[in-house]
């Protein structure tokens, strides 16, 4: 019975796809407006054969990863600094919160004005989007490390680096990883938008292009690709979480 449990999350998506294909076959669906799953898959095979799909996936992945690393590191460093140093927090936190409240996608035109129409604007926008969840979760994670444990560390005269390595960072890690998973979602949605303007490659460009040519097959294909990539990155992050937080097994959780 346990083996079947694994497949439960897939029931709804699979049923939806079957229903979708059936309605196309039966004729309820106007495949000019919305292609059938089969057509989308065929389009996917076609574009994989001629290299378009792999190339654009690779480019998008590169931009996304770069932006994530950039924004994630900045968010992590700032979160750490503001959690550990009152001076840093007083100096920077308000500014960060103000910027956070600006919907970063709306900044795209501004980013293009500042950074031009090339790669930097896209990567920076992704970085900006990724920065905040990581910042907040790093900050909160560190701030919420059990004060008991910190006091224990002080009483046991642990060096500052040991305090950080053994107590503060591991204690903040669950929160940080939550931030990472959230940030991965933001990474994809930001990239989609960033690639619709002044892009010559990437999944977002493929989507805009498909839109302009009324190529709904490619359009849906790109949407599906985004869903797959999003799920994939989330799964990898979840697995990472399980590995790094394996000590939580056995804890009584709500």
């Amino acid at each position: 019975m346990n083996k079947l449990k694994k497949f439960i999350p897939w029931i709804i998506p699979v049923l939806l796809i079957i229903f979708w294909q059936l309605s196309a076959v039966v004729g309820i669906l106007d495949t000019k407006v919305i292609p059938s799953p089969l057509q989308v898959i065929q389009q996917g095979i076609k574009l994989t054969k001629n290299g378009t799909l792999p190339k654009n996936i690779a480019v998008s992945l590169y931009r996304a990863t770069l932006g994530f690393l950039l924004g994630g590191s900045i968010g992590f460093v700032l979160g750490m600094a503001n959690a550990l140093s009152t001076l840093s927090r007083n100096l920077l936190d308000s500014t960060i919160q103000m910027i956070r409240n600006i919907p970063h996608l709306a900044l795209l035109p501004l980013f293009i004005v500042w950074f031009g129409i090339g790669e930097p604007a896209k990567v920076y926008l992704v970085a900006l989007g990724v920065m905040f969840p990581i910042y907040i979760n790093t900050y909160n994670g560190i701030k919420n490390v059990s004060p008991d444990l910190i006091e224990m560390g002080q009483l046991y005269q642990l060096s500052r680096s040991k305090m950080f390595k053994k107590i503060i960072f591991p204690g903040a890690l669950p929160s940080i990883l939550v931030g990472v998973r959230y940030a991965l979602g933001v990474m994809w949605t930001t990239l989609i938008v960033a690639e619709t303007v002044n892009a010559k490659s990437g999944l977002g460009y493929m989507a805009t292009d498909a839109q302009n040519f009324a190529n709904t097959k490619t359009l849906i294909l790109v949407v599906v690709m985004y869903a797959i990539l999003g799920k994939l990155s989330d799964s990898i992050a979840k697995f990472l979480e399980e590995e790094l937080l394996s000590w939580q097994v056995g804890e009584v959780k709500a």
């Binding site: 224990m152 009483l155 046991y156 642990l158 053994k166 591991p170 204690g171 890690l173 000590w247």
Partner: peptide, 26 residues
């Protein structure tokens, strides 16, 4: 705080992410 003094608390205050032996060696 002095190095010759150690303290025990009401709750163990062990690091949940370290094994027992690593906690002792902390």
């Amino acid at each position: 705080i002095q190095a010759d003094t150690r303290i025990m608390f009401q709750n163990g205050r062990l690091l949940p992410w370290e094994k027992v032996i690593d906690n002792v060696l902390l």
